[in-house]
Design a protein around this nucleic acid. Structure first.
Length: 843
RNA sequence: GCUCGUGUGGCGGAACUGGCAGACGCAACGGACUUAAAAUCCGUCGAACUAAACAUUCGUGCCGGUUCGAGUCCGGCCACGAGCACCA
């Protein structure tokens, strides 16, 4: 046939005509929702990474379809976002225009890949039909108090000219998107209250069929920490401090080590916390102000540098330690973070490294209160492990574990302590000072304040004629027609919110919209989504662990609690594909010049060649370096299949012109049971059934490389068999028929073409049933096992497959080599593992 | 610093529950076919020792342990990668 892109196109057209990717609602009980993370419609052609992700998960989905599942595999576009806007700034081409044309181009490309995507359910997040419901989601969260506005020091990327969520700032304080060092700005922004779900987000992780590392990283990000909140009374000039409501000012501190409470020598508040102002005495005001100013100027990088020496200033106030009524000074220092816990920390230099450093620097006393149980006399400070309490009043002599319980219980009677759980996770900042995103459906009215846009007025359309030159201001704020509106409440003049939503909001619920993408009454139909979701298998890169994958889980839970759906998690199973590297083993990058464009390979070899190569040459979850040689090897493998099938057809037709048609028409064609099989035929049958078993098992767990290896073995076995005398063509035909079905998911166009040449007209191999193996065929008459002496391999023997241990022992002892192997040792025990090894223990 | 993951021939990678390490393929080498080449087909292919074969010994990052038996389990290192990191 000479496989090429011509063949690709022929079958793509055919699949289109027979609407093979259509979802049959009547078979919803067999539904299988397979989803690949949707992609950003960039101008360039599909790259190798797209192929690896979409091509091979499509193979998985195709196998599932043949196994009888009703597969739902939609495709769409994550179409809002910075690249289109930046492209517009460079070229003057409007984001809407470039994005829409990119979508058209990508649709074509995805079709040319041969993916079985359900285009009836396509969506693009930049279209009003979609972002209208994104705004609706925002309003529902707002109603629930899950979307709120606050002024806070937020991450600002000076290059992208926008704020970023915590999750979008990398560990080295650079922007996730552009790598620029992120700074802090004090701004009023919209947040989603993901912290309300911190506990459930953590708790439900073990039930997910996700990679363990991904779950660990999410757990790490959520950062649950158990401890207690201790209340200290603040005093100034020996009088209780009073807050603005005329109440005693109580300072709450979070600690995981209540057992060290007797060792507290000071409190430290974060310089940017409001407490700092309240606590500063007039005498200390100048010094504290200067320190606060200095802190604000420092970047997070400087501030969190571990080589940095501790700094700090005394506020002038004191606090009373509730456990022993000691009066301790209150300081401010930048090693305390305003956003975590209460922004106020008790300083225990004896048992915390940071506090130890701080107190050494400022000559504060160091009181040991925990002793090392191994060596209580010589406990080296700071001693940060659990131990035995010393210098701790009534609690002296107790273990840390005992003391923590007792101290909290004791102070709790006076409301001075309670058990507390803290999370590292912060609320999700969703405002962005950019143009190409979902407008926030809120107006600000001088009379009524913050007013949500009524749902009936949605969508708040993103205007087209906007000046989006980046200057740190939201582009929409410069568009008078957009900004000036009337208050839905009082009808007076009002302003719109000039910001747009983080694009991760779009992608946090798109998996539900896919199911019901044309609904113009609501986000999605609850009944439909409850039937179709959660997604059964989700496939995508590992870079979204603490962003998209966490946000989606949160939004799903929020939607559940608001009554929009009835399940807990969006993605039941998850697989991350690995990364394909350049041939040099480095990450593909335009600047290094080691990128591989799939197009040239496809034009030359056809799309299935690339797909098979990607399946065979890598372990799917690991990826690895590109290798032209292996790609050529795949073309040879495909050539062998092609020739084998062609020769088979020729031989069958030589024998009888009508035979092929007869066999093809017989759905239950199975010549294997009608005759006594020769040894060679039994062997072919064994390999065939083994292949069916293994290909199915391996492909099922995304281990495509070994699936292809087994298929190569079966081809070798077929070629061995046809060298025999008196070849039975019906057996070969049937084996090839199974072969093509097993190959079809990995080389869909190629297999269709061969399937057709085998006599199947006007149909599709994807309507065929996936082969099932016969366990009995795997059993051979004799089996070779290994002979070990004291676990060391000595030789091999053939035994009857049903031989029991005594017979095998007898057979072994009858061997001439047995005496040599045994030497002068005495047999103590013989271990026989059926079908595997026999091990003689001797000494 | 803490947490997690990975480490197997010249290369990509297999090895299911502790049971014959290196499947499958690439590269390499030898051969067949051919006037020749390409293509195709057949064979060899972890290391050491040996003239060679048989045999033997060693071999899954390193050291030790458990076990009749360890790539696989346990303890301790080393290297690389990822996540977190002044989170109290």
């Amino acid at each position: 046939m000479n496989y090429s892109t011509e063949i690709d196109r022929k079958w793509q057209k055919h699949w289109d005509e027979i609407n093979i990717a259509k979802f049959d609602e009547t078979r919803i009980d067999q539904k299988l929702y397979v989803l690949e993370m949707f992609s950003y419609p960039s101008g360039a052609n599909l790259h190798v990474g797209h192929w690896y992700n979409y091509g091979l998960s499509d193979s998985w989905a195709r196998m599932k379809k043949m196994q009888g599942y009703e597969v739902f595999q939609p495709m769409g576009f994550d179409a809002f976002g910075l690249p289109a806007e930046n492209y517009a700034i460079d070229t003057g081409i409007h984001p809407k225009d470039s994005t829409e044309s990119n979508i058209t181009k990508m649709e074509e490309q995805l079709k040319s890949m041969g993916g079985l995507f359900n285009w009836d359910h396509e969506l693009a997040t930049c279209r009003p039909e979609y972002y209208r419901w994104n705004q609706y989601l925002f309003l529902q969260l707002f109603k629930q108090g899950l979307a709120y506005r606050k002024k806070a020091p937020v991450n600002w990327c000076p290059h992208c000219n926008t704020v970023l969520a915590n999750e979008q700032v990398q560990a080295d304080h650079t922007c996730e998107r552009c790598g620029t060092i992120v700074t802090k700005k004090n701004l009023t922004q919209w947040f989603f209250k993901i912290t309300d779900y911190a506990e459930e987000l953590l708790e439900k992780l073990p039930d997910l069929d996700w990679p363990e590392t991904t779950k660990k990283n999410q757990a790490n990000w959520i950062g649950r920490s158990e401890g207690a909140e201790i209340t200290f009374q603040a005093i100034q000039n020996d009088h209780d401090l009073i807050d603005e409501n005329g109440e005693q000012l109580k300072l709450k501190t979070f600690t995981t080590r209540v057992d060290t409470l007797y060792g507290v020598v000071a409190l430290v508040v974060a310089p940017e916390s409001e407490l700092c102002e309240l606590l500063t005495t007039p005498e200390q005001a100048a010094e504290v102000k200067a320190y606060q100013a200095k802190t604000l100027l420092m970047s997070d990088i400087d501030r969190t540098s571990t080589v940095l020496e501790k700094t700090g200033v005394f506020t002038g106030s004191y606090a009373i330690n509730p456990i022993n009524n000691h009066k301790i000074p209150i300081w401010t220092s930048d090693y305390v973070i305003a956003g975590y816990g209460t922004g106020c920390v008790m300083v225990v230099p004896g048992h915390d490294e940071r506090d130890f450093e701080f107190c050494t620097k400022f000559d504060l006393p160091i009181i040991p209160v925990i002793a090392d149980p191994e060596d209580p006399e010589n406990t080296e400070l700071p001693y940060v492990k659990y131990g035995i309490l010393v210098n701790s009043g009534d609690h002296t002599g107790k273990t840390s574990e005992e003391a923590m319980q007792e101290i909290v219980a004791e102070l709790a009677m006076d409301n001075l302590a309670e058990e507390q759980i803290n999370y590292r996770l912060r609320d999700w900042l969703v405002s962005r000072q950019r143009y190409w995103g979902t407008p926030i459906p809120i107006v600000y009215c001088d009379q009524c304040g913050v007013v949500p846009v009524p749902e009936s007025d949605l969508p708040v359309e993103l205007p087209y004629d906007v000046d989006f030159t980046p200057d740190g201001e939201s582009p929409l704020s410069k568009h008078a027609g957009f900004m000036n509106t009337t208050c839905p409440n009082c009808g007076g003049p009002a302003k719109r919110d000039p910001d747009t939503l983080d694009t991760f909001v779009c992608s946090s619920w798109y998996q539900f919209r896919f199911v019901d993408n044309k609904n113009d009454q609501t986000m999605f139909d609850k009944t439909k989504v409850n039937k179709m979701c959660p997604v059964d298998h989700y496939i995508g890169g590992a870079e979204h662990t603490t962003m998209h994958l966490l946000y989606s889980r949160f939004i799903t839970k929020a939607l559940r609690d608001m009554g929009y759906l009835d399940f807990d998690e969006p993605f039941q199973a998850l697989t991350h594909q690995g990364t394909i590297l350049g041939a040099d083993g480095r990450k593909m990058s335009k600047s290094i010049g080691n990128t591989i464009s799939p197009d040239a390979y496809i034009n030359k070899y056809g799309s299935d060649t690339l797909r098979l190569f990607l399946a065979f040459a890598f372990s799917y979850v690991d990826g690895g370096p590109w290798n032209d040689d292996t790609l050529i090897a795949i073309t040879k493998y495909m050539g062998r299949i092609e020739r084998f099938v062609a020769e088979l057809i020729e031989q069958i037709e030589q024998k009888d012109q009508s035979l092929l048609g007869t066999w093809a028409a017989d759905v239950n064609f199975d010549p294997w049971h009608s005759t006594d099989l020769t040894k060679a035929e039994k062997e072919l049958n064994r390999v065939k059934n083994y292949t069916i078993k293994e290909v199915t098992r391996d492909a099922d767990k995304f281990q495509f490389n070994t699936s292809i290896a087994r298929l190569m073995e079966l081809l070798n076995a077929l070629q061995d068999y046809v060298k025999e005398e008196n070849v039975k063509l019906d057996l070969v035909y049937q084996t090839v028929s199974d072969y093509l079905r097993l190959l079809a998911p990995f080389a869909p166009h190629f297999s269709e073409e061969l399937w057709e040449s085998l006599g199947h007209q006007n149909t599709s191999i994807f309507y065929e049933k996936w082969p099932e193996h016969d366990e009995k065929a795997l059993i051979t008459d004799t089996v070779e096992i290994a002979v070990q002496f004291n676990g060391q391999l000595k030789g091999r023997i053939n035994i009857a497959n049903d031989a029991k241990q005594p017979e095998v022992e007898e057979q072994l002892k009858a061997m001439p080599e047995f005496i040599t192997w045994l030497g002068d040792k005495t047999v103590r025990k013989i271990i026989y593992v059926p079908g595997k090894i026999i091990n003689v223990v001797a000494n």
